[in-house]
Simulated assay, not measured.
Amino acid sequence: MPSQLEELVSFLHSPQPAVRQIALDNLVGFSTGSNATVFRYDNYRAISDLKGLARENSKLLVQQSVTILANLCDDLTMRKMIASDEGFLKYLTCKICDLRNTSADIMCILLTNLAKEDCITKVFSFTTMDSKDVTLDKNVFKSERIVDCLMDCFVKGSDRTLNKFANFDYLAYFFADISRFRLGREYFIQKQKYDGVIPISKLLVFTEKYDSKTRREGVASTIKNSLFDSEKHEELLSNEEINLLPYILLPIASAKDSEIDDEDMFNLPEELQLLPEDKQRDPIPEIICVHLESILLLCTTKKGREYLRSKSVYPLVRELEKNVENNDISELCDRIVNMLMRGEIGTDQIEEMPTRNAEDEKSRLSDDEDSEDDNAIVEVA
């Protein structure tokens, strides 16, 4: 005999809307932790039911069903079942870009959780024509590629300027996840045909958006992941259309870094030379660590180290270590100093990638490379 909870789960495919709503009202609280196993009842039929309910017109019904799906992503089997449904993935990504969608933000969380699966790279082939149920505003979205539309939502839609119901912050974590794959990294550093802009350059400004930890953290990880292909470093550092380095250094810098002498100050990127008196470092040590890991990745080639030396990165890192009491930050600062201040060996050979989640550069990063932070599932209360 099914338990009372299992009976509730079976009500999700009731033909009566009121019964389905009652089931959702009672099941949202059981979608996290050990209770989530109830959704395995009847050979995981609830997953199909919830995906169907996520396409309904009722705001409450959609938000509750998507919330449950997002929470169930903590279960590997259920996450794979959701992510492997290409039709649902196409609908989800397209619906996020529907500027009338009142559930766009919770859908961004679901998409972020699904991005832990390798099959997420399918989104690079999705177009706005793939979901017949959703029509996008062509005055806003100039590209037919869904990944471009998602980028536009994130960049143009912060502070609810595109969709009054959404700020799209959690797309930052989605971008971080897809940048784990070579296909994703290539997307972020290549100029796109529809607007002639390199995507990563659109994200950099958010490294100092101090009212949104989610944006800063996701963008910092996207930058770091985009640096795992060391053959791209010279282009990323020298291309003025990207202007990468200042946006890695600004979050770790403070106006109180007073012991940088005039010569070193003059060599810093212009954006760091005359900091306002109220300029503070990123308040989250873990985010500072991500930026320091990006600097370490840029230290893996001789040209990269030479460039960082020429831009006074060492004195800036020295000030950071001196003024911030955090063991992880200190350890990373020491490793950067060792890389930048040692003598060179005369060739431009690739060094071992000195980050916490990097493999040996000689074997290159595999496309399924990830970190503990990348694997974190966002649960919705």
Rank of each mutant, 00 (worst) to 15 (best):
L53N: 04
L53M: 04
A54D: 02
A54L: 02
R55E: 07
R55A: 00
E56F: 00
N57C: 00
N57Y: 02
N57F: 01
K59T: 04
K59D: 06
K59W: 02
K59V: 03
L60V: 00
L60W: 02
L60G: 00
L61E: 12
L61S: 05
L61M: 12
V62H: 04
Q63S: 14
Q63H: 13
Q63F: 04
Q63E: 15
Q64L: 03
Q64V: 00
Q64P: 03
Q64M: 13
S65K: 05
V66Y: 06
V66A: 05
T67M: 06
I68W: 02
A70E: 11
A70L: 10
A70T: 12
N71K: 11
L72N: 09
L72S: 04
L72W: 06
C73I: 04
C73Q: 09
D74E: 15
D75P: 08
L76D: 13
T77R: 15
M78H: 03
M78S: 03
R79Y: 05
R79G: 08
K80M: 07
K80L: 07
K80I: 03
K80A: 11
M81D: 08
M81H: 05
M81K: 14
I82K: 07
A83Y: 11
S84I: 12
S84F: 14
S84R: 15
D85C: 02
L89M: 15
K90P: 07
Y91V: 00
L92P: 04
L92V: 01
T93S: 15
I96E: 14
C97M: 14
C97T: 07
L99E: 09
R100T: 06
R100F: 00
R100P: 00
R100K: 15
R100E: 13
N101P: 03
S103R: 05
A104R: 11
A104G: 10
D105C: 11
D105N: 15
D105Q: 14
I106W: 07
M107C: 08
C108G: 05
I109L: 11
I109D: 07
L110Y: 06
L110A: 05
L111F: 02
T112K: 12
T112E: 14
N113G: 08
N113D: 12
N113P: 08
A115H: 14
A115D: 15
K116E: 13
K116T: 10
E117S: 08
D118W: 04
D118H: 14
C119G: 01
C119H: 05
I120Y: 08
K122L: 13
V123Y: 05
V123P: 12
F124L: 13
S125K: 15
S125W: 03
S125E: 15
S125I: 01
F126Q: 12
T127H: 05
T128P: 07
M129D: 14
M129W: 07
D130G: 02
D130Q: 09
S131I: 00
